[in-house]
Amino acid sequence: MTTFDRVSDRLGQILAVLAAFCLTAMMLHICMDVVGRFAFSRPLPSTIEIVAEWWMPALIFLPMVAVARHHENITVDLFYDRSGPKMRAFMNLMSNACFTVFLGFIAWGAGEQALRAYGEGEYIVGMIPVVTWPARFFLPVAATLTGLLTFMRALRALRHLTAGPGHDAGGEI
């Protein structure tokens, strides 16, 4: 295992744990809102807005690195499973390169938007005002880190592909 693998493993794990915390917090938050509404006719203020603007982006985007690490991004494996080692190495290169480009676009766009929201001090007003700009950073950060991971995988696939015959290139990268 290289240093890069160890670091990305650890980082992915930390972000996923943060997401897990947000999931648990969201569950408790919603339950408390329901109890407040039925028992005291007093729901928690702006629950819907906080769930949508904070808990959801956190628990969706923060685990991206861990998902990629666990190879849990959904793919069509039909042809891969029936291909030889050389073809598999090419498919590994192709899929990781495409994933990297996609994540690059997402990270750049979301990053620009996050900086803009930060500049405006973005917030929304429901029953109470809720600051929303910090949650804008979950996606660009997670997409950048995931993109680094898939970029390294693409490089590895390229090395396998160019390493010539006899080299084992059939495994998952």
């Binding site: 999931l23 569950m27 919603i30 769930v51 949508a52 969706i60 979301a110 996606l139």
Partner: peptide, 23 residues
């Protein structure tokens, strides 16, 4: 293109109605 990339991904995820899925 950049407009769509800036607004849609975060905006889609930041949704109350979809929050039933993780629950």
């Amino acid at each position: 293109t950049w407009g769509v990339l800036r607004s849609i991904p975060h905006g889609f995820a930041a949704s109350w109605s979809l929050s039933a899925i993780p629950m």
